[in-house]
């Protein structure tokens, strides 16, 4: 555990909590892509199956449980509790265009051809592109609420911090996981356009961030 890994995890946790609280407090999931949230729930479920097979640390287990719990709670709020506020017409990204290629890639390129390992790889690849329905939705409506941009910033920052964590681990531990690094790079690059807008349009008078 190094400082980049820890701040990355906390940034990830902050993103998840921000989104959950935003929906809960405003009693609305307007502007939030339910499809992205379902993909994140799938990501956590397929990645954290090792909860059943191996114990790494109390920190590891509790964070996994929190991530999974929050992911399903978010999906529940969007599709059940506040379903009336869900903007399904603008959430029109075709997720099969992500899930099918990512599934194929996970079967082809993995560390070990076993079910658990393929599902782990699938989750890593899927996570890297799972935000696309959300970004697509924002570009379609042309705007995002400020709190939604904070969510996206924390979520993007988390994988960027993980990149620094992997550089650290390579130098100090000789640890190298090319699948995670490659997917992490893709994931971070997808946020770059958003990062730029978030920083340049930031400020006290900001109400909304427009995406091209």
């Amino acid at each position: 555990m190094n400082v980049f890994r820890l701040t990355g995890d906390l940034s990830h946790l902050a993103a998840i909590i921000i989104l959950l609280l935003k929906i809960w407090k405003s009693r609305s999931c307007a502007g939030i892509s339910g499809k992205s949230q379902i993909l994140f729930a799938v990501v956590f479920t397929t990645r954290y199956l090792d909860l059943l097979t191996s114990f790494i640390s109390l920190y590891n287990t509790s964070m996994k449980l929190i991530y999974i719990g929050c992911a399903y709670a978010t999906v529940y709020l969007i599709y059940v509790k506040f379903r009336a506020t869900y903007d399904g017409n603008h959430d029109s990204f075709r997720v099969e265009f992500l899930v099918v290629p990512v599934g194929g890639l996970a079967v082809l390129i993995n560390h070990n051809f076993s079910l658990m390992e393929i599902l782990w790889t699938f989750s890593i690849y899927l996570e890297s592109v799972a935000i696309l329905p959300q970004l697509f939705m924002i570009s379609k409506t042309g705007e995002a609420e400020t709190i939604t941009t904070h969510y996206l910033f924390c979520l993007g920052l988390y994988r960027a911090l993980y990149l620094l964590n992997w550089i650290w681990r390579y130098y100090f531990e000789g640890f190298l996981d090319m699948i995670a690094i490659f997917a992490g790079l893709v994931q971070t690059v997808l946020y770059c356009d958003f990062f730029y807008l978030y920083v340049t349009k930031g400020g006290k008078d900001r109400k909304k961030v427009m995406l091209p």
């Binding site: 995890d9 990830h12 790494i56 590891n60 560390h111 782990w120 993980y162 640890f175 996981d177 699948i179």
Partner: peptide, 10 residues
């Protein structure tokens, strides 16, 4: 090596 160790990251 990554393919032998459990995945200790989130």
């Amino acid at each position: 090596k990554a393919d032998e160790a459990p995945h200790d990251e989130l």
